[in-house]
Nucleic acid binder design. Structure first.
Lengths: 160, 160
DNA sequence: GATGAAACGGTAACGTT
DNA sequence: AACGTTACCGTTTCATC
């Protein structure tokens, strides 16, 4: 589905979407219009979902990052729970397999704002518990990368 | 630090960084050159960290998303642990407060690639345990938002 | 911060392999 | 069918007020 040209173009755009098509073309071995055509195709195919500015949480007034595990009775995707996404502080919501049902990534002004968010959570019918993991340091935070580690063992049988 | 103009500009750029300065200016009530100057300032101030393409995990061959809790003896930030970031599959690494020391966000080709990543993890001295939360559905996944919920209660004392 | 102008890059049409 | 070349036009970006 994606050839080597596409991978190089995507790699460049993830690194810096402000690069000119000509410059990306140098990196990928294509002319600017060729890059343009491929980017247009990758966009409409949904490979590129969007092009956005990444902001510094602290600078925009949200220095506190936390992952919140939410336990629910029944199954997770309630109307009320989904509405937590209306808070700009909530960046991610995933249902997961494991000892919790839902993981939220939230970025808030501080502990009080987090508490308010948790209060909103406990008002929702079916929410039985939550565990918050407050981030102390972020060592890595980057977008989906275009490349993949190639040489995974096909059948990684652990040696005894 | 950020005025209302900045917030509007940042909001527009997070939504779509491909917008022209003229169009952002309409939305914010500024001329294109004024927007340009502010964006330049926001960039060099580090408020805008980067401008990137957001890719669809499935399309780039990484349909499996998981959060991995890593428990370690001593304290988390070992040289070896940091090198997990060399895998393009590892998107985030945070040290956290709670019943684990470190949370990794990883996106892989499938279960086997995740297993290989976990094997790499257990090779690291000091890593004692891990718990993986495999994402079943993603309901929300968006960048840091420029806006904040305004009317948090200042001192949210829970009523009895 | 706005206005006007110059340089640059995005984008379409066309020709080539 | 996909890329390169050419050329135009909108946008970025700078100088001036």
């Amino acid at each position: 589905m994606l050839d080597a040209f596409d991978r190089k173009i995507l790699g460049a755009l993830v690194e810096d979407a402000g690069l000119s098509y000509a410059r990306i073309g140098e990196r990928a071995g294509l002319s600017a219009p060729a890059v343009f055509e491929r980017v247009k195709r990758l966009r409409s195919a949904g490979v590129i979902e969007s092009v956005t500015a990444r902001l510094d949480g602290e600078s925009v007034g949200k220095p506190l990052l936390a992952f919140v595990h939410v336990d629910t009775t029944g199954w997770g995707k309630s109307e009320r729970l989904m509405r937590m996404g209306e808070f700009p502080e909530v960046e991610e919501m995933h249902s997961v397999a494991g000892d919790t049902g839902m993981i939220l990534k939230v970025r808030t002004q501080g502990p009080q704002a987090l508490e308010h968010l948790l209060l909103q959570l406990y008002v929702i019918p079916g929410v039985t518990a939550s565990r918050s993991y407050v981030v102390l340091s972020t060592y890595l935070d980057r977008p989906v990368q275009a490349d993949v580690t190639l040489d995974w063992p096909k059948h990684p049988l652990p040696k005894e």
